[in-house]
Amino acid sequence: MDILRMKQMFRPKTLQTLLYHGVLIFCAFLIVFPFLWMLTSAFKTQSEIFHDIKFFPRAFHLDSFREVLSIIPFDKYFINTVKFVFGLLFVQFFTITFAAYAFARFRFPLKDLLFTLLLLQLMIAPQTLVVPNYIIIKNLKLLDTVTAISLPYVASAMGVFLLRQAFRSIPAEMEEAAVMDGASIEYYLFKIAIPLVKPSYTAFALVSINFHWNEFFWPLIVTDTVKSRVLTVGLAMFAESSESAAAWNDLMAATLLVAAPLVLLFLVFQKAFVESFMTTGLKA
């Protein structure tokens, strides 16, 4: 019995599989370890951080979380982030739907040029334009508001592109039939077309949420106070005080709190997440 199993194990095929898993596990370890080390360090005491190299803390202390929550107005940052991310998503829903539909279904002069101009946006990230955009926000008297963070993202080339593809996949006859029945194009768009391409919306929503939740540099520039700071900026503020530089357990606890919402969302909706990134990634 044992010999049989041994034989099986050393069959070339099995050996190959083992090697396979070996390599994969090694890579997975490299990529996952930083997160796990952050996770366990958040529960350590300061002296453990300085003097131990054990992976698990001696006991799961919650002190660092208490400390962090007492220093960082985490709830406010969280609310600001949610406002920014979901408020933006709401507005983007309208901007991309209309533009995408126009590009998918209508013919108009300069269409190709306009589309190219739109796609160029993919090449220029908001952090590159911090200086002029900061001046614009300043002139609009919107500094230190959640709106200011959102404005540069309202037009989304990626979203328009994605939905244009989706709307194109719907047979044109459906629209014609609907219009023949006396429905307006908007009625058709909202009652028939959008429900048909729901997966594309989900994909866009998840990518948009992820992207904006993680945004850091632009919000850093336009926010000044707790009133508008988002989580990532709050984390940086906390880290910048050399106060926390000495307390890595606190800093890791803060990092965990900032990263956790999306990581949890990701773990729960893994499949949807991965698929969204694949579709948007491929087509952007």
């Binding site: 500094l143 520039i221 000044d224 707790v226 050399s242």
Partner: peptide
């Protein structure tokens, strides 16, 4: 008074100047 923690010295100066230039000085 609303106390706003604003990073280290360099960042505090940056934030204050930025805010002041934006017409919303501390």
């Amino acid at each position: 008074v609303e106390a706003v923690y604003s990073g280290n010295y360099d960042q505090t100066v940056q934030k204050a100047i930025t805010a002041a230039k934006g017409g919303n000085p501390p």
